[in-house]
Nucleic acid binder design. Structure first.
Length: 989
RNA sequence: GCCCAGAUGGCGGAAUUGGUAGACGCAGCAGACUCAAAAUCUGCCGUUCGCAAGGAUGUGCAGGUUCGAUUCCUGUUCUGGGCACCA
């Protein structure tokens, strides 16, 4: 009887499914455990081998916890709203709901083959109206709440209205620059629109204006991903910034809680650090500088820019280093800053305008990543309030409008970027830190003593911070300020395939729908194209617009911000989930997913959970207790290099012009040759020979064109399907058959005639032709082999390139395990004999190792421990049930099908998943002696077997008596003998 | 540019707390079984010097701490992920 994995896996998957072996109840005597995967976006490309990595890990842990006696919730669903489905709809006219459904069916088929223990009755689908009814409901909670500055909690906005009616604005004075103080009477006298505008400043979901990537030619807003070098990825049309009405979530109000509560979480330090940096809390000061000159006419023309007394504009900067105020040599203002037009002098007008035009075409990312120093002088000066010095005001792309006040004071002697800027534009540098600044590189120290700093001379920088801020506050031109790098989260998209907002607009006021009107269903549309003026496709629907409904839809992360709650009670029609269910399951105990969600999804989910907690709908305020980040399985891409350097071409006269004109030569050059040219390793002669070779090849391609001259050796690199490359060697025949345009390809190969491809490690993606489909592997080796191999690849948290080659080894292991139970000739070989001490030692060592490794998510070493165990049992020909049966239970999380099959072969009637995890007993593995490594000066020279209970004195005697040690000692006495019990011995000579 | 992570044989990786570097697997080499193949089994397998015994060297690179460093510290290079409308 041989290991027929195909039959076994199909049989048990069927039985588990029929008998609902993985159904989970919301009531149980057992302790609960919630294991969650980051649910997938069901893309049209299907599952690739990267997806299951985390799912297998979570499946192993779920099964392990169940064997350990827990009631385990392990659900799965789909993040089904998103841009790709909409894009597909625009291109192919297929409704996103249809393509999404097909993709989900495909995903499910693929997932099922791997044998996961999901409770599919709890499946959630974010694009299902039954689900997004509650997404809309939560949005209404956000809309109808504000962050109470006293309690630091989300509170119904009606409370704020009551406060305004009773005492005016006292509770919120100073919180929003757009809201001036008012009394209760003044509040009551305001129109409804004026009142609602004020309330909008406090709602947790609010409407405002923001800049987007606007592509006029496509008539749509583009994601940063879709913009490449300032033009649209599709079509290469110009993209510029456009101001649009947008919904936002007021996540900045929660910044402190999101930051502080990180310490409650069992997340990696790296992950916490990324969130901390994203929130970017800094303490510093806002300082007002008077602007002295510039375009005076324009200042007079816009008097609101000027302070009443000076009639001059004020430049407000944010700095974390007010102590360096005497070292300010210039100001940098973001090019879109409101002051720029007003302060620019006539002489600088053109330069500034040109610079702003340049910046408009640049993405935020490009602006920050730019190495080249760019900027323009406005012609205006700010006045240093302490010494009256005139400070030139510049604009530069690296200062972003959205952070701080959009203006910084630059101190070149203490800041790298300021220093480079000053050098580039020849701005004189003031040294305020004495010897700590050597003139060639800036020094950001806080420990030096100030010089050239007026009343601060001799004060240590660190101490000067308080002094300066106190003084600024006293003078009324500055104040302490806590700043966050994080901005409020943009929460609307001008798209079709997302949740509609339950909002009606009347006279410029947003009115929420009532709960009874939910779900507000996404209407059918004729076309998925954008609406007029940058509005979404919903603006094209007359019936929608007539009702004054909001035409934006929610972003992808709306549905994914709370899905983990819905799994707990997914069929509830009256609540998003009952309090009884959320109280029982509580936090997700283990959340497994990629680091790519470090700041987006994980931060939004934390926010939503906190708001629901504040409003009393949940009993916990952090969603994910423990987070495990699986590394990305990267694809190993292969490249071919096509020659494009033939500049002069001569048509073969017999060919029809129109067919031959644009057809380039299809000559591919092997990577080593391309690299030799690029690294200038080729001699002139080599290059001439290569040119001749290429010319000959081109002229031999009789269907194309001939050339008389090769001017330059240039190549275009393109992806080639990894499946037609053996290692790095291209299968030339398969390559020619892969695309019509390659049919006549010719190759410049290495000396041995092989065409070698370039190799790069990248994210796995269909467009890079580097995906590997799990179905083929499951078909060929079985789900158990596939599961164990994915785990065996390396540490779960590490990203690693996929390579199918090693899968045979894991498959051999399972076959070897099988042979402990069944022999091909003899059939059943397992027996009921009593185990020996050696056999028990192997068993209990394995129990300990598997338990420890599983607990610390070291699945790769667990797999190798199974291999070691089976190798040892095979070596001593152990076929005893007493040893093998517990090993099957250990193996269940990793290879559930083969474990179940053999478990039943041994005569068991129940599922193995309902067995109890074996208990480790230390008495079987105790050792009495140890083979100590003996080092001389840190280098191991010999081994010495000594009893484990031997102490330092006895060990020293034993060691110095050793022949090899004596040889190395050369008669000298050791200076010192270091003995670590149970570890090693080191002799220092 | 900024934030985070990683780097160990031909390859994936192991070394859990500073204590024998290379477990386990792949590939390769040699052999057994077989008419043959598959499957299976046995042995070898970092580099280098040496017939061998044995020695030297070796965890991206350069330093440092230590009796002892893949592990800790400083600097540096390269690779991967993220950077706010992909999910």
């Amino acid at each position: 009887m041989e290991y027929n994995f195909g039959e076994i896996e199909q049989k048990w998957q069927g039985k588990w499914n029929e008998s609902k072996a993985y159904e989970v109840s919301n009531t149980s005597d057992k302790p609960k455990y919630y294991v969650l995967d980051m649910f997938p976006y069901p893309s049209g490309a299907g599952l690739h081998v990267g997806h299951p990595l985390g799912y297998i890990a979570s499946d192993i842990f779920s099964r392990y916890k169940r064997l350990k006696g827990f009631n385990v919730l392990h659900p799965m669903g789909y993040d089904a709203f998103g841009l790709p489905a909409e894009q597909y709809a625009i291109e192919h006219g297929v409704h996103p709901a249809v393509s999404t459904e097909q993709n989900i069916a495909n995903f499910r088929k693929q997932l099922d083959k791997i044998g996961f223990c999901y409770d599919w009755d709890r499946e959630v689908l974010t694009c299902d109206a039954k689900y997004y009814k509650w997404t809309q409901w939560i949005f209404l909670q956000l809309f109808n709440s504000f962050f109470n500055p006293v309690t630091q909690k989300a509170t119904p906005i009606t409370e704020l209205v009551k406060a305004f009616e009773a005492e005016g604005s006292t509770q919120i004075d100073g919180l929003r620059s757009a809201v001036k103080s008012f009394s209760a009477e003044e509040w009551k006298a305001l129109t409804e629109k004026e009142q609602q505008d004020i309330l909008m400043e406090f709602r947790l979901a609010f409407c405002g204006y923001g800049e987007v990537n606007w592509c006029e030619a496509l008539g749509t807003v583009l994601a940063n991903d879709e913009v490449v070098n300032g033009v649209s990825e599709r079509g290469g049309h110009p993209v510029e910034k456009k101001r649009l009405r947008q919904w936002y979530l007021r996540i900045t109000d929660y910044a402190d809680r999101l930051l502080n509560d990180l310490q409650k979480l069992e997340w990696s330090d790296a992950m916490k650090e990324m969130q901390t940096n994203w929130i970017g809390k800094s303490t510093g000061a806002e300082i007002d500088f008077v602007v002295s000159i510039g375009n005076r006419e324009s200042i007079i023309a816009s008097p609101e820019l000027a302070t009443p007394d000076s009639r001059l504009p004020i430049l407000k900067v944010y700095t974390t280093r007010p102590d360096t105020i005497f070292g300010v040599d210039f100001m940098v203002v973001s090019p879109e800053h409101e002051l720029v037009a007003g302060i620019t002098s006539a002489a600088q007008q053109k330069e500034v305008e040109d610079y702003i035009t340049y910046v408009k075409s640049r993405s935020e990312r490009e602006r920050q990543a730019e190495k080249k120093i760019t900027g323009a002088f406005t012609g205006a000066y700010a006045i240093n309030p302490f010494d009256g010095r005139e400070i030139p005001i510049w604009i530069s792309e690296y200062v972003l409008a959205g952070y701080g006040t959009g203006a910084i004071m630059a101190v070149p002697c203490g800041d790298e970027r300021d220093f480079k800027f000053a050098n580039h534009f020849n701005i004189p540098i003031t040294n305020i830190i004495g010897d700590a600044f050597n003139g060639t590189e800036p020094n950001a120290t806080k420990d030096a003593k100030l010089t050239n700093s007026g009343f601060l001379n001799g004060v240590v920088l660190r101490d000067a911070i308080q002094i300066v801020v106190d003084k600024l506050e006293e003078m009324g031109i500055g104040k302490r300020k806590i700043n966050y790098r994080m901005r409020d989260a943009a929460f609307s998209r001008q798209r079709y395939w997302g949740e509609p907002f339950p909002i009606v607009w009347k006279n410029g006021i947003a009115y929420p729908l009532s709960e009874s009107e939910l779900p507000l269903e996404l209407p059918k549309v004729e076309s998925y194209s954008p609406g007029p003026d940058g509005q979404g496709p919903l603006a094209n629907i007359d019936t929608w617009v007539e009702k004054d409904l909001e035409t934006n839809t929610m972003p992808g992360y709306a549905g994914s911000s709370w899905y983990f709650l819905r799994y707990m009670d997914n069929n509830n029609d009256t609540e998003f989930a009952s309090r009884q269910a959320t109280d029982y399951w509580n936090q997700v105990d283990l959340y497994i997913g990629g680091t790519e969600h470090a700041v987006g999804h994980l931060l939004y989910s934390r926010l939503w959970t906190k708001v629901l907690y504040d409003l009393g709908y949940l009993g916990f305020d952090e969603p994910f207790k423990k987070l495990l980040n699986q590394g990305m399985i990267t694809g190993s891409s292969r490249f071919v290099y096509r020659f494009i350097g033939a500049s002069s071409k001569k048509q073969i006269s017999t060919l029809n012009e129109s067919t031959s004109l644009d057809k380039p030569a299809t000559i591919f050059v092997s990577v080593n040759i391309v690299e030799s040219i690029e690294n200038k390793k080729f001699s002139l002669e080599d290059i001439e020979n290569l040119k001749l070779e290429i010319k000959d090849k081109i002229n031999s391609q009789d269907n194309y064109f001939q050339t008389s001259e090769i001017r330059s050796l240039e190549f275009v690199k393109s992806h080639v399907d990894v499946n037609i490359v053996d290692g790095v060697e291209l299968d030339k025949e398969q390559f020619k058959n892969s695309k019509a345009e390659y049919a006549n390809a010719l190759f410049i190969t290495e000396e041995d005639g092989k065409y070698i491809c370039g190799v790069e490690t990248e994210k796995m993606s269909k467009s890079k032709f580097n995906t590997v489909n799990p179905d083929d592997l499951v078909q060929k080796f079985g789900a158990d082999t596939f599961r164990m191999y994915e785990m065996f690849l390396g540490p779960i948290e590490q990203s690693k390139p996929w390579d199918t080659k090693g899968i045979e080894g894991v498959h051999r292991f399972l076959k070897k395990l099988w042979r402990l139970f069944y022999d091909e000739q003899k059939g059943k070989v397992w027996n009921e004999a009593e185990p020996t001490a050696d056999e028990l030692k192997i068993l209990h060592r394995t129990i300990k190792k598997i338990e420890d490794d599983t607990e610390r998510f070291s699945f790769n070493t667990a797999v190798s421990a199974f291999m070691v165990c089976v190798n040892e049992l095979a070596d001593i020909k152990c076929h005893k049930r007493a040893i093998l049966e517990p090993i099957l239970i250990l193996l269940t999380p990793y290879a559930p099908h083969i474990a179940e099959e053999l478990w039943h072969s041994l005569g068991n009637e129940t599922y193995i998943i309902d067995a109890a995890f074996p208990t480790f007993e230390a008495k079987y593995v105790v050792e009495s002696s140890k083979e100590y490594p003996v080092s001389i000066n840190g280098k191991v020279r010999t081994n010495l077997n000594l009893p484990l209970d031997m102490g330092q004195a006895e060990v020293e005697v034993a060691v110095t008596a050793n022949e090899i040690v004596q040889k190395w000692l050369e008669g000298k006495a050791p200076k010192k003998i270091i003995f670590v019990k149970g570890r090693m011995i080191n002799i220092v000579i």
